[in-house]
Design a protein around this nucleic acid. Structure first.
Lengths: 155, 155
DNA sequence: TATTGTTATACTCTATAACTATA
DNA sequence: TATAGTTATAGAGTATAACAATA
């Protein structure tokens, strides 16, 4: 029989001098570090690209690169459910950024940027370029390339 | 006067042979690649650590490493609002994983893992270790260290 | 006065199930 | 039968504002 561990009341350890919490195993985990890095980048994005969330900006970029794409194809490309895409398209259509047109296969909607959508997206892309330069400036150029390749391996 | 751009109707480009969408500038963006990598890792976590989300598991890890921590201190450590922490503690307390105790400063609640919480966390940490090994196995050891350091620079 | 925990409320993002029009 | 879009509904996860208890 394995010796039973003595039951002991939990006790608070001496608090750390700097007032920070002990982080346990969290900093050893790739997913945790990834999340912190991403939060920092999303914070910068939200601050400097105030018109759209990263996801919605990404969606406009995909529609621009694939004019006339159907909702379902776009949903698949973004790993979203078809029903989730409906609300996303609703919002961007109400804001006058894109429009649905009846597809040749009449079950489908094809998606097209409006003039306003193209104009906003041009501005957004300039801001994103600045955002990317600012974020990327924390790394040397070869480091940036290295990071991209390492991130790819995690997929 | 700048020459006006000729108004032209959008046209669908030839569809790609592989059926995939064109990704536009997305793959050039650090934030986009970061998100894809994180989604892959969260997917693995959800599949192999079925009892808790990454955020809740992280919270238990912090309480274990800081027994008796107050709700507010924990919220600050996790970058959450105090009011958000209330519901998080409610859920984990209802599941019998941790408990509130009246603090010495009687405005505060101090948080402690229950026996059940310690037992579940031990199992969770074993699964997390396997998860981390599986995810990390996509990288060579020096690559993993390199990734950690690059991610840190983005914060 | 300032801080802690709490409640009420709301917003974003996402999914599942069931429906309809069309193929 | 199968697919595309839609609706109703629900569940995470998060925040702000206002309040009572306590410092």
């Amino acid at each position: 029989m394995v010796p039973k561990q003595k039951a002991r009341r939990q006790k608070a350890p001496a608090p750390r001098a700097d007032g920070e919490l002990r982080a346990g195993i969290l900093p050893t985990l790739i997913g945790y570090r990834l999340r912190l890095a991403q939060q920092a980048i999303f914070r910068d994005f939200a601050e400097h690209v105030p018109w759209l969330s990263p996801g919605r900006a990404g969606m406009l970029i995909l529609v621009e690169a694939n004019p006339g794409v159907t909702q379902s194809r776009l949903a698949r490309a973004m790993s979203l459910d078809r029903s989730t895409m409906v609300g996303l398209v609703d919002v961007l259509e109400e804001r006058g950024l894109l429009e649905r047109r009846r597809g040749e296969d009449r079950r489908t909607n094809s998606l097209w940027l409006t003039r306003g959508g193209r104009q906003l997206l041009a501005r957004v892309k300039r801001r994103i370029a600045e955002h990317e330069a600012r974020v990327g400036s924390r790394l040397a150029a070869p480091e940036r390339a290295q990071l991209m390749s390492l991130l790819d391996k995690l997929r």
